[in-house]
Amino acid sequence: MEFKEAKIAIFAVIFFSIILPIGLLVALGTIVSTVYKVYLISGTITFYMTIGTILSIAQGLANERESGRLSLLLAAGISRELYSLSIAISNGLSALLVTPLLLIFGVLLFHLKVASPPLLIIAIISALFMGISMGMLIGFAFRTPRDVNQYSQIISFTLSFFAPVYFPYTFIPLPYRYLTLLEPTTYASQSISMALIGNTSSILWSIGDFVYGIIFLMASSYIIKKR
């Protein structure tokens, strides 16, 4: 049902999947030096994979709860996790579509080379998992769709622009650098950028994403049980 409904948003998907990322890359590409252009790609992928997923899942779940359809499907035997995943995939189609497109734009515009595709796939899956779990947590933690909308936007944009997403983690001076380890998007962005340059430390950052994802899932499960 979620997939079937997703086709209604096709124009939004085209805009957010193609036009907006081209605009972002072209605009930011003019002010970023060549050596750091890889972070422009990894940052924008992180922005789409985590922020897009967090927002779409949190708000999608809140709307489904409000409309009673979450209850309808739970009563039909669908688990919350599976339903969240279907919302994630249907609402986050643009996020899924945009990753290969961003890589293609990176190759065409900035002559980017993907040094380690396997590490990149692991990094993207772990970032997606973390985004889904966090979206679920926000979607279940707040009572009304209005609360969920406000908090999911504040949280996701804070995690995009107050974390080392568009620049290397090492740019942050010590001891503040340690604070960025509390932000889950740091792990997503660093794992993707390290994978793009072929640095095996990408796998460690991906593990960080998985750990955060599991913590968020456990917190969601706790909130659901408390209700």
Binding site: M1, K4, E5, I8, G68, S71, L72, G77
Partner: peptide
């Protein structure tokens, strides 16, 4: 089950709503 204040999938047709619920129920 019809939960309280539930809405069907408004962007789907009557038939699609019924059909997919049947599929969900196996």
């Amino acid at each position: 089950v019809i939960p309280q204040e539930v809405r069907p999938y408004l962007d789907l047709t009557v038939w699609d709503n019924v059909y997919y619920m049947g599929r969900i129920k196996g």
